[in-house]
Computed example of a mutant assay.
Amino acid sequence: MFDPVCPSDLSPIRIGDKWAGMIIRCLEDGPRRFSELRVPLRRVTAKVLTQSLRALERDGLVVRRVRTGGVRHVEYELTPLGRSLLGPLDVACAWAEAHWEQLLDARESASP
């Protein structure tokens, strides 16, 4: 999913927008700051990442927390509802991996 040669728009199963599944995976191990999300999601612009995080927050999948105490910063974390998507994402990723060549072939044959 995070392979630089893997086109993220090839993913046939989407939750929310194009980046939502990858954001959920990035938050799987706990809260992360925006700048920490930018590292594995290097191909997404800051604007689009912000829009995706807001949509995930609106849908109840992610919570945004402002931390104070010294330096103020914002962290994003999966809610229990967001965490419940990890299992289905595992299944979807396994399916995509098993059918990767077919997906690539279909995409290439549809290109003008």
Rank of each mutant, 00 (worst) to 15 (best):
D3L: 07
P4R: 08
V5H: 11
V5D: 13
C6H: 12
P7W: 06
P12N: 11
I13L: 13
I13N: 01
I13D: 03
I15Q: 07
I15R: 06
G16A: 05
K18N: 03
G21F: 02
G21Q: 08
M22G: 10
M22C: 03
I24W: 04
I24A: 02
R25N: 05
L27H: 06
P31Q: 02
R32A: 13
R32S: 09
F34L: 04
E36N: 01
L37N: 01
L37Q: 00
L41G: 01
T45I: 00
A46I: 03
A46E: 12
K47M: 01
V48W: 00
V48Y: 00
L49Y: 00
Q51C: 07
L53T: 03
R54C: 05
R54V: 03
L56T: 02
E57V: 02
R58T: 11
G60A: 06
G60L: 02
G60N: 08
G60R: 08
V63T: 13
V63F: 02
R64E: 14
R64W: 05
R67K: 14
V71R: 11
R72K: 09
H73T: 12
V74K: 02
Y76A: 08
Y76R: 10
T79R: 08
T79G: 05
R83Y: 10
L85V: 05
G87L: 15
P88H: 06
P88W: 05
P88E: 01
L89V: 05
V91C: 10
C93H: 15
C93A: 15
A96T: 14
A98S: 15
A98V: 05
H99E: 15
W100T: 11
E101F: 14
Q102M: 09
Q102Y: 07
Q102V: 10
Q102F: 07
L103H: 08
A106L: 09
S109C: 10
A110G: 12
P112M: 13
